[in-house]
């Protein structure tokens, strides 16, 4: 009798399980919903961090949008060029060219900027900005409260020793989270390989910009005049580098009187560059005089 009980139990439960199993298997076939076969493939190419940098709800939403053609194949910044190329292959499109972009904070102020007051409120840039338009005299400067640091999922942005947010290009995936978090909107994207950047976003006129920060761009145009590649221009009162033309010679950073262009040159480097310029000018002058003398001799 006991034996029978056990056998019954096993039979009933096993039978039920088998029945449900079969029903589910049949149901899976009958109610099969056609999922776009590209969907799982694209999902594999995406970063899978669900960072939301693409603007869609999670990686699944991004994959849907890419299939629907609403999002570009490069929508997933963390997946990088490699991921974009794979997705492009799946979608039957050509792989996008262009180099990896990283976020970049356009401010070099921090300690060099003039403070309006000392902010002791919530550690949040927007919060600081709400109090008398922020503790900085500069209306374009980084507040250094670290809203972007909190927004970064990849530990790629930190407040540096100057009190300004700085991106680690190695870790940055250009997901755009910091750009969205920054209330000053001073985070842009730049090619990852480039090292020369204008480090000020202040569009104020020279005298005003001069007062609010030691490292502000005053729009003097020294960089523009000295650039040999026509790659830097003063637009709206602040210098901007055209990364298509920039060769990374750093001349602009050496001539900048405000130390507003990265990498900031040391005074020695500047002196050296000035000496070179002087020598070149003298050489040119001598050559011009020689040419004049030769012409005069010819005329005679």
């Amino acid at each position: 009798m006991d034996m029978m009980n056990i056998i019954y139990a096993v039979l009933v439960l096993g039978g039920l399980a088998a029945l449900f199993g079969i029903v589910l298997a049949v149901a899976a076939k009958v109610f099969e919903v056609e999922v776009d076969e590209r969907y799982p493939q694209i999902m594999e190419c995406l970063a899978g961090a669900n960072c939301g940098g693409c603007g869609y709800p999670g990686c699944g939403g991004c994959a849907d949008a890419i299939i629907a053609g609403k999002a570009p194949v490069t929508a997933c910044a963390p997946a990088g060029a490699e991921g974009a190329a794979k997705i492009a292959a799946i979608m039957g499109m050509e792989a996008p060219s262009g180099e990896r972009m990283v976020a970049h904070v356009i401010c070099n102020g921090g300690e060099a900027s003039v403070k309006k007051y000392e902010y002791r409120g919530v550690e949040d840039c927007l919060g600081a900005l709400k109090v008398g338009a922020g503790p900085l005299e500069c209306a374009y400067g980084c507040l250094g409260m670290g809203s972007c640091v909190k927004a970064c999922q990849f530990d790629a942005i930190h407040i540096n020793e100057k009190g300004v947010a700085e991106v680690d290009p190695e870790k940055c995936t250009n997901c755009g989270a910091c750009r969205n978090a920054c209330p000053r909107k001073i985070i842009t994207e730049v090619p990852a390989s480039r090292k020369v950047h204008v480090q000020c976003a202040n569009k104020d006129k020279g005298p005003v910009a001069m007062k609010v920060c030691k490292n502000s761009c005053i729009g003097c145009g020294m960089c523009e005049r000295n650039c040999k590649f026509d790659a830097i221009h003063v637009v709206d009162g602040v210098a901007k580098i055209d990364y298509d033309k920039c060769k990374g010679c750093k001349i602009c950073s050496k001539v900048c009187p405000r130390d507003a262009i990265d990498p900031i040159s040391t005074p020695e480097e500047k002196e050296k560059f000035k000496a070179v310029l002087k020598a070149q000018a003298e050489k040119a002058k001598a050559a011009a005089e020689a040419a004049k003398a030769a012409e005069a001799a010819k005329a005679e």
């Binding site: 009980n5 019954y8 139990a9 009933v12 439960l13 039920l16 399980a17 449900f20 199993g21 029903v23 589910l24 149901a27 899976a28 009958v30 109610f31 099969e32 919903v33």
Partner: peptide, 27 residues
């Protein structure tokens, strides 16, 4: 006469039921 198996059997039923309903609703 297998009342003592209620819990196990019910879990089985509920789990497969939910799975089935999910598939059905998806379609």
């Amino acid at each position: 006469g297998l009342e003592y198996m209620q819990t196990v059997a019910f879990i089985l039923v509920i789990a497969s039921l939910v799975q089935f309903v999910e598939m059905f609703m998806k379609k």
